[in-house]
Design a protein around this nucleic acid. Structure first.
Lengths: 205, 205
DNA sequence: TGGATAAATGAACAATGTTCATTTATCTTT
DNA sequence: AAAGATAAATGAACATTGTTCATTTATCCA
């Protein structure tokens, strides 16, 4: 029936309306300042309406976190053009931490906040597909590197996790403001320099 | 005058009473569930009393975060007995991530939460002495390694930051529940295995 | 002992996420 | 087209949070 289709479409439209408002506020005033009331005000609906379309706040944050992985995925997708696996791996790290520094609140939501994981638990879904897919890109890349002779004597998955951890750690420490005040020399450019050091470490392998 | 001394002592006692209650709740029910009212209830004082001794909740969390660094510092202190700098560096990483895994909420407070940094800002203190001191231990250790011939061609501070980032990243991803669901093989022991990979990476330098 | 100083109190406020009975709009059927 | 049924939207109300501050209670000192 055509009518039910249209209605479903309309429902989707309002859902994305809410999500767009949430994202707009999210990047504008940052995560902690986003309230359901502000979202409702932004789209000129009542508070209750938001709860018609989303189970709770975690539901909204979970959707935003998914969108974030969409963004990150697009950025990573460009790297398919880099054929040499080792070069692609290095570029992957760069894309990753630039995404994090450009979208700190989104990155925090994707990799630090409890909201998305709590939502998945509440939904009985054990699978964190977004994270899985992204880590898979890294793991496959490292695998290619190993196939072409790099990382001899290393184990694929733990090594991939180490690489992820290193880049994530730099981003996380930066976003949580722990770098400033600890680093004496060039606290602004430390991540770039540190990444060079990291590349030097893995390049010899 | 003796009386004012005694009064100052009493004030300190109540402060520590509050802090101990806060810490007890902190490790028991975790960070997010700790409320001023629960702290007050725990020590059988009124809510207002807590605000007589602490400016706000961030003040309390800042003190707890300092205590955390005290704990971590003690754990690290034992490593003085390890004379070989490279061995000491590896052991340092182990102590660090074991502390993180054993005290996830405390670690989160120390290295992720905004509360301590916000408190320092509000107090006009730019200095994060706790973090500085801890990072200094790492940097000095790396320096010793370089003096004894390791890490040739690397820069002290960026390299130290990379090492910190790697271990912090593993801890952070574990605490934020991002490891489970992404790692296929042995999600429990991944950190141990990954740390071995990391050690292998830096050991060759 | 009484007046001053310090400490403790808890009611009250604003902001938050969330619920739900009620109202309003839309659709379906006769 | 009207009426009844279904769906969507509403916003007042609730519980919980951090925080404040006039008031009460305790302590000190002259």
């Amino acid at each position: 029936m055509g009518t039910s289709e249209r209605k479903a479409k309309e429902k989707e439209e309002i859902k994305t309306l809410i999500l767009n408002a949430a994202k707009k506020l999210f990047v504008k005033i940052g995560n902690e300042q986003v309230t359901i009331r502000k979202i409702a005000e932004e789209i000129e609906y009542s508070v209750g309406t938001v709860y018609v379309y989303f189970k709770d706040k975690n539901d909204i944050l979970n959707e935003l976190h998914r969108q974030g992985f969409g963004q990150l995925g697009s950025a990573i997708g460009i790297l398919k053009s880099v054929s040499d696996p080792m070069e692609r791996l290095k570029a992957l790290g760069r894309v990753y931490f630039h995404f994090a520094l450009d979208n700190p609140d989104m990155y925090d939501l994707m990799f630090n906040m409890k909201a998305p994981m709590e939502f998945l638990e509440a939904m009985q879904k054990e699978e964190w597909n977004e994270g899985k897919a992204t880590f898979d890109v890294l793991r496959k890349n490292v695998e290619k590197c190993m196939e072409s002779g790099h990382f001899k004597g290393h184990q694929l998955e733990p090594l991939s996790f180490v690489i992820w951890s290193t880049v994530h750690g730099m981003c996380s420490l930066h976003i949580s403001q722990r770098v400033k005040g600890v680093i004496i020399e060039n606290p602004e450019s430390i991540i770039e320099k540190a990444y060079e050091e990291f590349v030097a470490l893995i390049d010899k392998e």
